[in-house]
Amino acid sequence: MKTIVVPGDLISDKPENGSGIYQKDNKTYSKYVGVLYKGEDTQVVPLHGKYTPREGDMIIGLVVQEDMFGYIVDVKSYHMPYVHKRSIKTEFKPGDLILCQVISVNEIKYMIIDIQAKLEDGILFGVSAKKVPRVIGKHRSMINLLEKYSESKILVGANGYLFVKGGKPNIVKDALEVISKYSQTENLTEKMEGYLKKIKVE
């Protein structure tokens, strides 16, 4: 049984190390609505939230604006990174989908991204960034299930954008809605298999 904690909940009477927590008066409290993991470290993993960039992450972006010197890209975060034209060889236009890598994140949380490829002939879907691990599943079990039943190729960005090519994207869309809503259910992958079998018949 997972323990869900909320901001301000007392986690420990001693100062602990970890993430998603803070110390006050030598006690440890939760910072988020999230799942509590107590191990070597104490972690509160938020259940929902926008994408927080990390160096090395592979993410999917949507070009939203172009000006003389570069592009503004929507990466489902609280800030939209800017890519200079002089740093890339290809030309893009607003509406293009791109695969990027996060090169660095500076002190004011601005990220610098590097465009790896243009993504064409596919559909863009989105989930909360915090639900991406659920969408992928343990050892990619969930994402393999989705690809099997939809017969699509699915690229999952760490930021919560997904690129779906071919097959039946509406099956992927349905599945993503269910995963998002029931992300805390135990054995979700098994239950998803049952659900996908059912809707494939319809």
């Binding site: 949507l62 939203v64 929507d74 559909i123």
Partner: peptide, 15 residues
């Protein structure tokens, strides 16, 4: 609402 541009294409395909 540019993020829906692609789902819009999907709508047209189904239609």
């Amino acid at each position: 609402m540019q993020e829906y541009k692609y789902e819009s294409e999907l709508v047209k395909q189904e239609l």
